[in-house]
């Protein structure tokens, strides 16, 4: 029963996308990418901490949508649940517990922003140049198959079982570490 189900998952036939469908998907991606970049820029420039958290929410959603475009459904679902669900709540807790000012706060940034700007731009320049050099106008395969959750599970529990177990130890350590650090005593 089990094995036949897995077999069915693995033998999903990739279906090539028609140019029309490709155009739709591409347009969708460019739109959400633009939204994401704008939201990211607002996030690092806004004067309101709560707004910054909300802008981050938008960026994370855009990233999840990008995963869908790339056919990584499980990563997208996890992105929504872990990031948008758990991490955002944690960050908002952080905002609340540190008594952030509701409304605009003038003292969120350093005065000299050019240092950060210069670093970011130079990093982008280096990365952009090398990306263009390396991949240019390489296309993703048109008959790109959706990577199913079952495949992810197979991979994690066979090939990546040791990192997976190590990760569980890390989470435990982080849990205990967080409790110890934040404990009132």
């Amino acid at each position: 029963m089990m094995s036949s189900a897995l077999l069915a998952i693995q033998s999903t036939n990739p279906i090539a996308l028609t140019p029309n469908e490709l155009w739709v998907i591409n347009t969708f991606f460019y739109v959400i990418a633009a939204v994401g970049i704008v939201a990211a820029l607002k996030m690092v420039t806004t004067k309101n901490v709560v707004h910054a958290a909300l802008y981050l929410l938008v960026v994370l959603t855009v990233v999840a949508a990008t995963y869908i475009v790339l056919g990584a459904e499980f990563a997208a679902a996890t992105q929504v649940m872990v990031y948008i669900g758990a991490v955002m709540v944690l960050l908002l807790f952080g905002v609340m517990l540190t008594r952030a000012k509701i409304g605009d706060d003038g003292d969120l940034d350093y005065d000299s922003k050019w240092i950060g700007g210069l670093s970011a731009v130079s990093m982008f320049a280096v990365m952009g140049y090398s990306l263009w050099e390396a991949f240019g106008t390489d296309e993703l395969p048109a008959d790109m198959a959706v990577q199913r959750t079952g495949q992810v599970a197979n991979s994690i529990f066979s090939q990546y079982i040791v990192p997976f177990e190590a990760l569980s130890m890390l989470l435990l350590a982080a849990l205990i570490g967080a409790v110890v650090v934040a404990r009132r005593d």
Binding site: I115, G116, S119, M123, A125
Partner: peptide, 15 residues
């Protein structure tokens, strides 16, 4: 800043 600048610099050297 030093870390990121150095990373960018080293990457540039690498390129």
């Amino acid at each position: 800043t030093l870390m990121f600048a150095a990373a960018a610099l080293l990457a540039a050297v690498f390129i």
